[in-house]
Each structure stands twice: as C-alpha cells, then as structure tokens.
Amino acid sequence: MKMNTPPVSPDPVMEGENEDIDIGDIEEVIELDDNTDLNEAADRLIGPSEDEQIGDSEEAESNTDMAALIFSKHKGSVFTCCISPTGSIAASGGEDDLAYVWDIISGNIIFTCTGHKDSVTQVCFSHDGTLLATGDYGGYIQVWKLATSTKIWEFEIGDLGWMTWHHGSHVLLAGTEEGEIWMWLVPQGNTRTFPSFGTASQCGTFMQDGKRGASGYEDGSVRVFDLKSGQVLQQWGGETTQAGSVVSLATHKDNTLVIAGSIDGSARLLNTNNGKVSRHVLAQGCGSSQLAWHPSEPILFSAGLDGVSRSYDARSGEPLAKYSGHSQSVLALDIARDGSVLLSSSDDGTVRVFKLT
C-alpha cells in the first residue's frame, strides 16, 4: 500500500447508514489521490489554531486604514509634517524637494514652497501660526509668511538635522550633522551659534520656559543648555540614556521632563531638575522615528517603522491605541494643540490625518 493511499473504507453495514446527508452541511470536499499531501488536507479540515487566528486578526488590524484623510501630492518619501496652531492647516516636506501647505480637512493645497535643491526634511509653524519654516537636508532654510504665501527670510548652514520654533517668539533653532546648533531671530536675522561636541546633533527642542534648549546626539548623549549663556546645564551620556543614537526629543509641559527616543524604539524619561533618568518608559520593538507628547494628557505617541503610530500611557508605559494605514515606515508625526488630530508622514509617499477625539 502506498503511504498516501487513503485507508480502506469501513464495513458498509453500519448503524445509521440510511440517514440522509444534507449537502448544505458539507463545507469543503477534498479529493484525495496518490499526490495528496495528507498533512495539508488535515490542516484545511481542522482550520487555523486559536493563536493563528489571533495573529491573523492582529495583522488585519495593523493593515486597516484608519485615516480620516490621505494627502498624496508628494512624489517619494515624506520626511516631515506638522499642524498649524489653529489646527486647520498642515505642512509636509519630502523627497521631491518640495513642501506643501494644505487644508487639513479637504486636503486642498494652499501653496507650494519651492526653491529647495534637496529633500525637505523639516517643516514647522511658528507659535502664532503666521510663519512656516522649511529646511532641506543640505541645510537651506526658508521662512514663509502664510498670509501672503511669500518667502520672507532664508539662510544656509551645514547638513540639517532638525529645526524648531520658540514657544513664544519668532526665534528659530536648528542643529546640524556637524554638531553645531544655530539660533536666529526671524526675519531680522540676528544669529547665534552653539559649539559642536564632535557628534551629530540629530534632534532638539526648546524647553517650555523658553530659556533653555535641549539636543540629542548621534553618540547617545543628551544635553540641556542655557540659550543666553550657552552653558551646558545637564548632560546624559550615551550609556546612561540610550543604547544607540538619540533621534527624537520631546519636552513635557511641566518644563521638567524630556523624553528621549532612539531608532530601536526604546525611550527614557529624563528629569532636567535633578538630572535623573526616571525610568524606561516604553519599548516599541519595530523601531521608532519620533516621539511626541499629547498636549494635555500623560500620553506619548510613537511613529513606528512598521507603518503604525501608537500611543502609550506615559506613567505605566502601557499601550493605548494604534493608528494604522501607512504601507511603509512612519517618518514623522505631529499632534494638534487641542489633541483632536494626529498627523503622520511616511516612506509610502503619503501624509495621513487621524482623528483622536
């Protein structure tokens, strides 16, 4: 007998042999022959296990597009995105050397920021929403007046790592791959520089008091410095803060806590009052490109390299929600000031708008 020959049928004289079979009860007919794989046939009959069903369900959930709006005007990866203080306008910049300003409800383009000769990697609105700064990887920075859709200021530095506005004035702060940090009063152009520590400045921010700045570096260090004197007030070495380079910094509204994230998805909470590393907050196994605080709640948002953004309880590190729809890595995200909207941009060439409330 061949190994895959079906067994001999049982004695045809058996109880219930005359009972009718409802053809509707048959879910699948599997015809067996000498080439049939019995293990595969059994799997088809038995169906997936409970663990497999859960896995399939989670995969389906991660593939569900939860976006309320998709902006797809860019050609190539979209490296940066932000929401205006009013919450009605968004900006994004990408591999196509362009930045777009667009309506966050309709997706209609308001105006296009041209003139860059490299990928636009930074866009950010001023605190009052009147100005937009756009910067490309090569270090060319332009500032646009939204009311007239015109450029009012420009400057060029080394390869740009990050850029952000002051919380209460038209002061722009930026860091470079060479490790220098620049600060300007816009559009007057008053300029100040802070020295390099021999490693790339990959991310940075103003502290909430507006008197201090913070930067995360390629060697894993984080420094908080006085904007007036330039003095370093706190410093955490690479081994103390991160296993790898720091790619994201976000300050809490309490003016004390800074969350520092690395590309592997790990994050630590730093206390700028006493210099302590409070605890390991979260670990996103897929890797993360950016972290952001909710404007009013103890919630952290993480941009996942698996194409999904996630929110976490900052007190416990417990996951709260997922925001899926991108088909490739999420490269940047932003949260509206009222906490109602999450904006994310991706390697898939789109920017997606997600409703939080």
Rank of each mutant, 00 (worst) to 15 (best):
D254T: 08
S266E: 06
A91K: 04
S215Y: 09
S311A: 10
I335F: 11
A303Y: 07
M163Q: 03
N4C: 11
D209I: 13
A336S: 15
V29H: 05
D51K: 01
E318A: 06
W153C: 06
K228R: 11
M14T: 08
L185N: 10
Q290E: 10
G94P: 14
A250F: 03
S316L: 07
S201V: 07
C286F: 05
M207P: 12
T112C: 14
T64W: 05
S316P: 07
S119R: 14
S49C: 02
R279S: 08
S340I: 03
I259W: 01
H167D: 07
G138C: 00
P187T: 11
E52L: 02
V8K: 02
S248G: 11
D103R: 06
S329T: 08
T121M: 10
A174H: 09
T357D: 05
V246C: 12
A267P: 04
W182K: 04
I54N: 01
H116F: 14
M183R: 14
S340G: 07
S316A: 07
D136F: 06
F197S: 11
M66Y: 00
P7G: 02
G213K: 01
I259S: 03
I83R: 12
E17S: 14
L249H: 11
L320E: 04
T114N: 08
A243H: 04
T357E: 08
G230A: 14
N35Q: 11
A332P: 00
A283C: 01
V78C: 02
S324G: 01
A200S: 14
G287S: 03
W153R: 09
F206C: 05
V308E: 08
I335D: 04
I83W: 10
K276R: 12
S9C: 10
T350C: 13
N273R: 11
A303I: 13
L185A: 03
D209C: 15
V308K: 10
Q202Y: 10
T350K: 12
D37L: 09
R212Y: 07
K211C: 09
H326I: 08
A332R: 13
A99H: 03
G87M: 13
N18T: 14
G168R: 14
A321R: 15
G189I: 00
D65L: 04
G158I: 00
G161P: 01
E95G: 00
V29Y: 09
E17M: 15
I335P: 01
N63C: 06
K117S: 15
A99K: 02
I152D: 06
T80E: 10
L233P: 15
S229V: 09
L300M: 07
G139H: 07
S201N: 15
T150V: 09
W184N: 00
L185G: 00
D264S: 06
R352Y: 09
L269R: 05
A200M: 04
L172T: 00
N255E: 08
E177K: 03
C82E: 12
I259D: 05
G198R: 01
I83P: 05
E15K: 09
S245V: 01
L98V: 15
K145A: 06
S49G: 04
W102E: 13
P12D: 15
I110Y: 02
L69H: 05
